[in-house]
Design a protein around this nucleic acid. Structure first.
Lengths: 222, 222
DNA sequence: GACTCCCTAGAGTATATACTCTAATAATAC
DNA sequence: GTATTATTAGAGTATATACTCTAGGGAGTC
């Protein structure tokens, strides 16, 4: 693999593990056993690394959320969208953690992220629309659909922070993708009241798959 | 005012304005025109300042969310809870911005914050319970009520980040309390499907008060 | 072999940051 | 007044961080 790509990969890995704030360019270089000079040969600064990682994230989610317009939406589609979005969130999980600081440090990123959010919100709204068309949920007025979509977005983008700050154990054990996907349970909770009788049971069954299992908190020895 | 209190106040102010990450102890001292030595006479380190500010935040919200058990809940109560929570969020808005880093740096804070979240979730659940008792919303099973409360929490705690990252203008104009309170619109959106006919119109009218006004984006000169 | 171009090493730097240390001053107690 | 304690100033420090600079290796080309 090219050094440039190795840098991007290692950065993402370290950022996800320790948080962007705790990872310096020297750390990244050391992790790859290359010199700082080498790293700076490939990237002008840390912001550029982050920006490029973001672009990959953006591309991934855009790809996932490319809603086909020519056919009806199925429950499998819905499952796919939900799973994919949380997969993306997982792979680039450092990003939302320090979002505000990152956007403050890089105007390009701020602009792109705003547009990215708008695209995501539009996609979610479209999904609601197509769910109504498919008879999965009752149709709702435009205004409500938009507000609901925004709530879905807020729940999705904040679920990880909730897990990391209020839920997970203190230890360095961290978080698992499986836990993260319990966010799907929360998202589907939002849709319950709008489900049509025809689909109600099926969606509830889907939701049930993501129900958080109450994890017993290990008593700390000592 | 005592120097100690001045330090807490100035820290909160600067943290809110610029973000904790961008505010050093030297900045705080300079802002107050005192020496760093003086600051460190009153606080052992930056973490202690943050911890003390958090305790004030916690106390404030606990006070707001002290739900009286001896009487029925009214719409005015609900309004008060919502307004208060967003007021608190505003006054200590730096906190959620760097939450994960802050909790990683201070085990006391992590423990306290987790308990704080649990108390807030319990309070929200109780509010739902009492809203059902008061006939404002239809009663729901325990499980659903808990999941709904968590969604309310996720929306509330993420609303500001949404505004700052995806919505607000780039400029240093920043955010206003009024904008922040549009989060109430989103929270009430969550409750719409559960409203009883008797209260539906009234709650919708309340919600309407917080509807975001589409702000025209100023074209940038130049 | 010489030239060029891409890549890399590694020492080095300017700046920032959290925090310390000493000495002096103000406040209080007796 | 004197002793004691609380408060403050301000210079200073150890460490970290993002980033630079110079020198050179390796591979291909003529």
């Amino acid at each position: 693999m090219k050094t440039r790509d190795k840098i991007l990969l290692a950065s993402l890995e370290l950022f996800n593990e320790r948080g962007e704030r705790n990872v310096t360019t020297n750390h990244i270089a050391a992790h790859l056993a290359i010199s700082p000079g080498n790293l700076y040969y490939h990237f002008r600064n840390k912001s550029d690394i982050i920006y490029e990682i973001f672009q990959a994230y953006e591309k991934l989610v855009d790809y996932y959320l490319d809603i086909p317009e020519d056919r009806a939406l199925t429950l499998d589609d819905l499952t796919f969208y939900l799973e994919s979005v949380f997969d993306g969130l997982w792979s680039y999980r450092f990003f939302h953690r320090d979002l505000e600081y990152l956007l403050d440090s890089d105007p390009r990123l701020r602009r792109d992220y705003r547009e990215f959010t708008e695209r995501c919100l539009a996609a979610i709204t479209l999904i609601f629309e197509k769910m109504a068309e498919a008879g999965i949920i009752e149709p709702q007025p435009e205004e409500l659909r938009r507000a609901m979509s925004l709530n879905v977005w807020l729940v999705i983008t904040n679920w990880m922070a909730y897990l990391k700050t209020a839920h997970a154990a203190d230890g360095p054990s961290g978080l698992s993708l499986a836990e993260l996907k319990q966010g799907i349970y929360q998202v589907l909770t939002l849709e319950i009241p709008y489900l049509t009788p025809a689909y109600r049971e099926r969606v509830l069954a889907l939701r049930e798959k993501y129900r958080p299992r109450r994890v017993a908190v290990e008593p700390v020895a000592g």
